[in-house]
Amino acid sequence: MFEARLAQGALLKKVVEAIKDLIEDANFDCNNSGFSLQAMDSSHVSLVALSLRADGFEHYRCDRNISMGMKLANLSKILKCAGNDDAITMKSEDNGDTITFMFESPNQERLSEFDLKLMDIDSEHLGIPEAEYDATVKVPSSEFQRIVKDLASIGDTVEISVTKDAVKFSTSGDIGSANIMCRQNKSVDKPEESTEIDINEPVALTFALRYLNSFAKATPLSPHVVLKLSKDLPVVVEYHIPDVGRLGFYLAPK
């Protein structure tokens, strides 16, 4: 039996909203250590990896490892019925063909239950090696969202180049070109506005803006986003979910 209660149910709503346009369906894997998902978009250009640690849940029980296949659009429909302040409990029997979502309002006056049919999904799991990156950049997530949105109105791809004190985002298209530079700024007064660069080697890589804009839908999950870059390797766009886990996106370079 699997049972997990998340006091901040809004987190689960935000996670699903962040990935539902990128991934059609996916297996949610549950074991003793937590709740996770790994899936590629339909063109196999990007990979999503979600992990929510067991200790991030108020209550977590998983007797056997289970894999629950869900269509993200359907999961989203159900989670939209949960209030933003509701606690969400997920429940499934070991060989069950449904998962139950229970929503509880803060004062427990309203309790609702929704059952979602599970489906069999063939998915390939990829092993992601632990890597040392040439550059790691931490920027406010809202800033990153704005940059990739603004640049997408000019071009289709962005070159991200990192030097020791700045990260530059550049694009060009039919109407012209643009570049946005963010300087390192370790703001102690407003840590949520800080930009931090940790560099071993200057690096410049080009990526499709369409995917970065899709990843930026995870902005409500975290005040910062971490970009990890190495020459000729996929970029990692990582949102740390405070006290619970992480949502990471991997995008192959152009």
Binding site: M40, S43, H44, V45, S46, L47, E124, H125, L126, G127, I128, P129, D156, A208, L233, P234, Y250, L251, A252, P253, K254
Partner: peptide, 14 residues
């Protein structure tokens, strides 16, 4: 899209 690599070439299949 032209020049777009697949993510599968970078990670090993489990």
């Amino acid at each position: 899209a032209a020049g777009q690599k697949s993510i599968m070439g970078f990670f090993t299949k489990k």
